[in-house]
């Protein structure tokens, strides 16, 4: 039972600390780097356009160029390369690699044979087209993930939410997400403190059935608190003049550097589309 409790404690604390680190840490976004200095709207638009180019690119060379550019951007934005590679290569690209493995065999991608081998009398043929297709798929995934990660690392999360307005998402929706973001932290603290309060009174060992009661009761309590908070926050909004259509301050200014970067990205997009579709 003690082991089980430690497991719950470790999982709960681990999940809370992961959430705090990943959602609320904006240390990298506050550094004085290149991407951090750009208007978040321009940054988001250019990053999304790079991701779209990557998704439609048919040339490995173009994807590689964009990947190298992404790494250079990370360096110019004062992000350590080791940290960035670790952050981008774990999980998704590895999964992509597993998904892509079958595609290298002639069964799925027929073509010019490169290697042949037998396992239990069954012949496997790896084709050039298979390797090239799988390679392109994995490179696309890693490059897209890298751009998305770079955007989230170099932009404060609440600013990122505001950027959603560029994509014509209604103001009220953006505001609600912003408020969720703000209150998730408060509820995480409540969960953490509640757990510590239980531990301080009940000790480390709690019987399974009793533990179930405590957890169920706390879920209900948290729901009740969030419901109450919801009403109170709405009162606070009304008290300051909110009447259903929020007005939000837009303090971001677009400078010369932003326009220069936007022109470069636009040129790259046009060039990529030209070489991928029209030049042939």
């Amino acid at each position: 039972m003690k082991r089980a409790n430690n497991f719950i404690e470790r999982s709960l604390m681990g999940a809370l600390s992961f959430l705090k680190e990943s959602i609320f840490a904006d240390e990298l976004a506050a550094r004085p780097g290149f991407l951090q200095s750009l208007d978040p709207h321009v940054k988001a638009i250019t990053m999304f356009s790079f991701i779209i180019i990557v998704l439609f690119a048919k040339s490995m060379l173009l994807v590689m160029y964009l990947y190298v550019q992404c790494l250079l951007l990370a360096l110019c934005s004062k992000i350590r390369l080791g940290f960035f590679l670790k952050r981008t290569w774990i999980f998704m690209p590895l999964f992509a690699l597993f998904i892509a493995v079958p595609a290298i065999f002639s069964v799925f991608t027929p073509g010019e044979p490169l290697f042949r081998f037998q396992v239990s009398g069954i012949a496997f043929i790896i084709t050039r087209q298979g390797i090239s297709g799988a390679g392109l798929f994995v490179s696309r995934v890693i490059t897209s993930v890298s751009y998305a990660t770079l955007l989230s690392l170099t932009t404060k999360h609440f600013v990122l939410l505001k950027v959603l307005r560029v994509f014509k998402i209604p103001q009220v929706f953006v505001m609600v997400i912003g408020m969720c973001y703000r209150y998730i932290y408060l509820f995480m603290e409540i969960v953490e403190n509640t757990y510590l309060a239980i531990k301080s009174r009940a000790g480390v060992i709690i019987r399974y059935r009793h533990g179930q009661h405590i957890v169920a009761w706390n879920i209900a309590q948290l729901w009740q608190r969030s419901y109450q908070l919801n009403e109170d926050v709405y009162s606070a909004m009304r008290s300051r003049g909110y009447s259903g259509e929020p007005v939000i301050l837009n303090g971001v200014k677009t400078g010369k550097r932003d326009w220069f970067w936007l022109c470069y990205a636009l040129t790259l997009v046009i060039g990529a589309v030209y070489f991928t579709y029209w030049r042939r």
């Binding site: 999360h157 703000r182 209150y183 109170d232 606070a236 909004m237």
Partner: peptide
């Protein structure tokens, strides 16, 4: 409760 009044990011 200032938590109620401070709801913006």
């Amino acid at each position: 409760n200032p938590e109620v009044q401070l709801f913006c990011p």
